[in-house]
Nucleic acid binder design. Structure first.
Length: 410
DNA sequence: TCTGGGGTCCTAGGACCC
DNA sequence: TCTGGGGTCCTAGGACCC
């Protein structure tokens, strides 16, 4: 997390650029390109998950839907109750990635100092290029308009002396707006906001804070450290700094490799037998290992994640002596982990996370295995990967999984 | 008809070693 | 027979973000 006070300084100028209703805007543009007559941004519309797979939640909403009180993350069922005429469209992640890339490409004309924060958000260290482009507000306005003109969607841009303030600023009033939250504006513009608006303060923490009669960001900014410390331990100082708009974390433009990758799926019905769960684990293990092999990376930790019908989640993990990206190995470990952890309660979600990723393995054979076997399975994976590259990801799968209805949903 | 999927970071407790 | 800390590594779970 980036509330790091060291390095915070007045003379930095940071932009936070945030696409307005990203998924919905991007889907709207894509639909228009494909001959759709209406712009779904002008309806009461949402991008939503697949209800038949029990993934029916709101991922993004139009301004109209927002006005009806629909919030991101709520069930489509509940959203429809608020807005009976609601239109629901499925997400298209391929389109989103393309639009996202087009935004970052446009921005990189101006500066290499861009930190990609998520698919629809980034930070720019404007201080470093100010002498090239001049006044930050004038530039921000031009940039905002250029994005709308060339890419067809709107953004909010927040300006501050650090990333935290820039991010808070871009969130003020939407859409298509520019806001500043410089150090001398923190009291006036941020302290009156309710505590849950502060970045990093979620539901659990805000409930606890309100219980301590801390209701606004200003209350937290001026809170007594010793009073809060027993409740929030090491987080206390970070929270108080954040409420004071202090953050020294740098804009990091190099793409850092992820520390782990995961894949999980909510099933369309609860699974009740190991055999059913194994099949899902196998597909997931293959997805993840294929991705790792593409990146030439290896996992040293395998985690199996389950959610039961009450939405309670469980995990079980194993650290490996040797990193692996071999599907059959990860699948084998996952099965073992499942067998150890599963209490036979019906399962709603199955996932695997591969962690502690490394670039190379110095493979050390255990006493009883032969390196030949390992080379063989590795080669098999490679052959499958090559076929996938040549003919597409769906042409080949494990025969074990063929014609299985779990896979169709996947 | 409650509640996606992919991440990061933190905490607490246990094992183990010195 | 009972009793120490300190440090590190590992695991499970939680909180938060988009």
């Amino acid at each position: 997390m980036w509330y790091n006070v060291d390095g915070d300084s007045m003379d930095r100028i940071i932009f936070h650029i945030d696409v307005n209703n990203a998924f919905l805007s991007w889907s709207a543009i894509d639909l228009l390109i494909n001959g759709f007559k209406e712009d779904i941004r002008n309806y009461d519309a949402v991008i939503g998950g697949d209800e038949s797979r029990r993934a029916g939640i709101v991922l993004a909403k139009s301004m109209g839907a927002k006005k009806k009180g629909i919030i991101t993350g709520e069930t489509l069922y509940s959203a429809r109750k608020k807005c009976p005429g609601l239109k629901v469209y499925p997400p298209n992640y391929y389109v989103y990635q393309t639009k996202s890339n087009s935004l970052f490409t446009l921005l990189s004309k101006y500066t290499p100092d861009i930190e990609i924060f998520s698919i629809d958000e980034c930070f720019i260290d404007y201080g470093k290029v100010k002498k090239l482009y001049g006044d930050e507000l004038i530039f921000a306005n031009k940039l905002k308009d250029e994005i709308q003109e060339k890419l067809g969607f709107t953004v909010n841009i927040g300006l501050g002396n650090n990333k935290l303030c820039a991010k808070m600023a871009s969130d003020f009033l939407k859409p298509n707006m520019i806001h500043t939250l410089f150090n001398d504006e923190i009291k006036d513009k941020m302290w009156s906001l309710p505590i849950e608006e502060l970045f990093g303060i979620g539901k659990k923490t805000s409930t606890k804070l309100r219980g301590l009669n801390i209701n606004t960001i200003g209350d937290l900014a001026n809170a007594d450290f010793d009073k809060l410390a027993p409740y929030f331990k090491n987080q206390t100082i970070k929270m108080i700094n954040a409420a004071n708009g202090k953050d020294g974390s740098p804009v990091i433009s190099e793409q850092v490799e992820s520390k782990g990758i995961s894949n999980s799926t909510t099933l369309d019905h609860d699974l009740k037998t190991s055999e059913e769960i194994y099949k899902v684990l196998h597909v997931i293990a293959d997805n993840l290992c294929t991705a790792l092999r593409e990146q030439h990376r290896y996992a040293c930790v395998v985690v199996v994640i389950l959610k039961d019908r009450y939405f309670k989640s469980y995990s079980h993990q194993m650290k490996l002596n040797n990193g692996t990206n071999i599907t059959s190995e990860v699948f084998g470990i996952s099965k073992k982990l499942l067998d150890e952890m599963w209490n036979l309660e019906p399962i709603r979600l199955v996932g695997i996370r591969l962690d502690n990723l490394v670039k190379e393995v110095n493979y050390q054979m255990s006493l009883f295995e032969s390196n030949e076997d390992r080379t063989k399975v590795s080669k098999l994976d490679k052959t499958v990967d090559d076929l996938k590259i040549k003919y597409g990801h769906n042409v080949i799968g494990n025969a074990y999984l063929k014609d299985d209805n779990i896979i169709k949903k996947y």
